[in-house]
Design a protein around this nucleic acid. Structure first.
Lengths: 305, 305
DNA sequence: GCAGTGACATAACTAAATCTTATGATACTT
DNA sequence: AAGTATCATAAGATTTAGTTATGTCACTGC
């Protein structure tokens, strides 16, 4: 009746961590007024002001500081409770939150879900699509339990297991000069090509940009907000791009106006993998999942971690 | 998104403690289906069955056992958080839940609230009326912070402070044979009188019953569900009762068909007092409150603890 | 053995809490 | 001094939680 809600504590911690209502709202997938209201309510219940609001964000008050410590403790306990019950040592059960990055979700999810349901029939997958940064935050907060993303991730809060190497292919419009041959392409041939990238925030953008730098190709001014738009831009002749192999069937299928060509030798690629909180007991369970997904997957290649 | 809510944990603990959805629903002031739904949701999220439902109530499963321990830990943390912020060492602030027993609430609340607001202007009182047992449960769970009831309470989870002695008066219809005189009455005169009691669950019932036993008066078959009904029954000539002095003005005011008479010598009485969780820091704060209320009260008498 | 009782589940509906969009206020920035 | 970023407020929509009424099932007691 008079206790704060867990959600209020979650919101409070998110705001305290980010120093901003707006950023926290984004992380929590709600609007900023929703946070304003909940924090106001929390402050009313406790009778203290938790944040000092400025026009550059917020600062914790002395009380806020104390409450933050305790709120973290509460949330830790709750995550612990959930972690202790959502598995039996070998299999997951109950509601399992899976976060997937947007450049992977549309292409590998069907296979992943099938494989997952197969080995964990008592679990109920709940899938969220978000960029790597948000995914790690959500994971940290216990809002999701598992992430599917591009490795490596440098943080000792988490453990990871590689699933597969996802090679990059050159994707170009049908009438492109490099489209005539099907043979493996030397990376240097990229030089001078205008490569369209995804917008900021996608890890794939950074990976592709890095390859481009190696090959002295110039990234295009234009940015795409999703892989789907990106491939349509390529088809429209606005430039070329590096397409992950897992997306090839969907984005460069016949009749889409796009031709792909593999790279010769050590092809550029990204490593797809699973990630979970280190605090989760029974890491083998996840290694198992990663292995099974790798085996069951049509885009599966040899893993070279 | 995927965490249980505090309410679900509260409900779960309440059911586990009472061994019954129905009883817990009562304690939590919600209907039984509300609990069924929330527990079902909690079980779904966790993927485990928490209770073994029988037709004589419920038993905890192995998982339930584990979750119970952790849920208690979570709730303890939350209560700790709230306790740490809802005062500044000298004064209360924020939302303060006050539980009051029904035989006290209508008569002393105005004075108590005024006195309380006076000494704790930053606190926002939220008042709940409930019988002693429920009050203690609510207090234990941190749903309220303070209780106003009849002492003594035997439990070392709590601390108490007496406020005032509330003498019992004999209340009878105007035409009763004992109504002719106003002088103090010997307790023995009660012998043979038919005394109407409140229904089960009110501590006042037990206190009055005990006095009756001493005086060899016979409790009536009839039970009243509240003091208001009780005094109307008395006025209607269905019997007499022992009325707490604090209720005299309201229930036996002029024109209500009821006459009261004090008892001679050591009058039977109840001790009105405050109660709070022992874990609350700064007990002096509450002793202060008790003292101030005692002083400010029109029903105030000497306290004899 | 069969109505009666007590306990939890289910269903349909209602009430309340929460969130969203749109807009306002305020203090820096340029 | 206009522009921008940040949080607050308001009105309306949505979602969640709760209520009452009823169902199911296993014991209880004649």
């Amino acid at each position: 009746m008079s206790l704060p809600t867990l959600q209020q504590l979650r919101y409070f911690v998110a705001i305290a961590d980010s120093g901003s209502f707006g950023v926290a709202a984004d992380e929590q997938f709600v609007s900023q007024p929703a946070l304003s209201a909940q924090i106001k309510e929390l402050e009313r219940k406790l009778g203290v002001t938790l944040f000092e609001r400025t026009n550059r964000g917020v600062l914790l008050t002395t009380h806020g500081d104390e409450v933050l410590k305790r709120a973290r403790a509460v949330l830790r306990e709750v995550v612990g409770l959930v972690e202790a019950t959502k598995h039996d040592g070998k299999h997951l059960r109950g509601e399992i939150g899976l976060g997937v990055i947007p450049t992977l979700a549309p292409y590998v999810l069907p296979d992943v879900v099938r494989s997952f349901k197969n080995s964990h029939p008592d679990a109920e997958l709940r899938i969220f699509e978000m960029t790597t940064n948000k995914l790690l935050d959500s994971l940290r907060r216990g809002e999701i339990d598992l992430g599917l993303l591009a490795l490596p991730v440098f943080s000792d809060e988490f453990l990871t297991a590689p699933i597969a190497e996802d090679k990059f292919l050159l994707a170009m419009p049908t009438n492109h000069e490099l489209a005539s041959s099907k043979s493996p392409l030397k990376l240097e041939k990229l030089r001078g090509e205008r490569v369209i990238l995804l917008e900021e925030g996608h890890c794939l953008r950074d990976q592709v940009a890095q390859v481009c730098q190696l090959a002295f190709s110039e990234p295009s001014e234009i940015q795409a907000t999703s892989m789907a738009t990106l491939s349509q831009m390529v088809a429209a002749g606005m430039g070329v791009t590096l397409l992950p192999e897992c997306a090839e069937k969907v984005e460069a299928g016949s009749g889409r106006g796009i031709v792909t060509r593999r790279f010769a030798g050590q092809s550029p690629s990204r490593t797809i993998g699973l990630i979970w909180r280190r605090s989760w007991p029974f890491a083998e369970m996840f290694n198992d999942i990663a292995e099974k997904i790798g085996k069951n997957n049509r885009f599966s290649q040899n893993v070279s971690s």
